[in-house]
């Protein structure tokens, strides 16, 4: 009888843990959306942030977030996929591979603020790119690279061995087999991983504090010349992203509606990330279905 009681008790407690976790998610997302939704409006999304008056928007921050994400992916995707190919297909079990694996482990466990400090040291100060989109994107590349390498390696490893053999048996070189057989077969997995990592990059803030900066120059959205200092496309201008903005309005801003702006921006951020999550899953499944013809 006694063991039965303990059994029921423990199962109840374990269930409580699970309910608590699900509750946290619902509470968190629900609270942010509830608080922020009333503040999201077309005007909020399309007007400039204000330095000390109420009623500022997040247009530039939203644009900066997506633009930095884009530039980051531009660097990470080729590098990360190449790294994944190396780990899955070329790495022999030797010291160098072990070292490479350790490097990836270190990169993936570095706190993002450390990555930001490194970015400040090298990109901002040493290369004199100042607080800029380029510095920020490069720091985020360091931050995101191990994830992409891992995603790509796992996706390639999950391609059945007989695909590799059939490519080689048909007289394809190893490189051709990778490029034309293995990568396409691994594509759904890589795509899902890429989009999920994009969500992570999109929400990252600490690494950007010292690399992309806390301010945005007055952007002229009619000027698309990437060299102009007020062009949205200029990669050498400083750029405050959405998540950095959330932190900044809470930490040291004097606008009277800081809370509302923060909630509104957080709701937009969470919505974007949910969107990334859902689209990653749907796109991956869609591509897979198309490939297998089922």
């Amino acid at each position: 009888m006694n063991s039965n009681k303990a059994n029921r008790m423990s199962i109840f407690l374990i269930t409580c843990c699970a309910v608590l976790m699900a509750g946290i998610l619902l509470g968190l997302v629900g609270y942010i959306l509830y608080q922020g939704f009333s503040h999201i409006s077309l005007r909020f999304l399309t007007s400039d942030a204000s330095a000390f008056l109420a009623g500022g928007g997040i247009k530039n921050q939203l644009w900066n977030s997506f633009y930095i994400l884009f530039i980051t992916m531009l660097f990470t995707v080729p590098l990360g996929i190449a790294g994944g190919i190396y780990m899955a297909e070329y790495a022999k079990p030797n010291k160098l591979t072990g070292f490479m694996r350790s490097c990836l482990e270190v990169l993936s466990s570095l706190p993002s603020i450390i990555v930001g400090m490194f970015g400040m040291l090298v990109f901002v100060n040493f290369f004199h790119w100042e607080y800029s989109i380029l510095s920020g994107a490069l720091a985020l590349t360091v931050f995101n690279l191990p994830v992409i390498v891992r995603v790509c390696e796992d996706a390639l490893r999950s391609v059945p061995q007989d695909q590799r053999l059939s490519g080689l048996a048909l007289g394809l070189t190893k490189w051709h087999t990778i490029k034309k057989v293995l990568l396409p077969a691994a594509f759904p997995g890589i795509l899902t991983g890429l989009i999920l990592s994009a969500g992570r990059v999109f929400g990252e803030s600490a690494a950007l504090l010292f690399t992309a900066g806390l301010s945005t120059p007055n952007l002229d959205f009619t000027n698309w010349n990437p060299l102009a200092p007020n062009s949205p496309l200029n990669v050498f201008r400083s750029a405050e992203t959405l998540s950095v903005h959330i932190w900044a309005v809470n930490a040291d801003s004097i606008i009277p509606d800081a809370k509302q702006v923060a909630y509104g921006a957080a709701a937009v951020l969470v919505l974007c990330i949910l969107l990334f999550n859902v689209s990653a899953r749907c796109l991956g499944r869609l591509v897979e279905r198309k490939m297998t013809g089922k």
Partner: peptide
């Protein structure tokens, strides 16, 4: 996937 600033907020 939820960003750390949102947790902070």
């Amino acid at each position: 996937g939820i960003p750390s600033v949102v947790y902070g907020l």
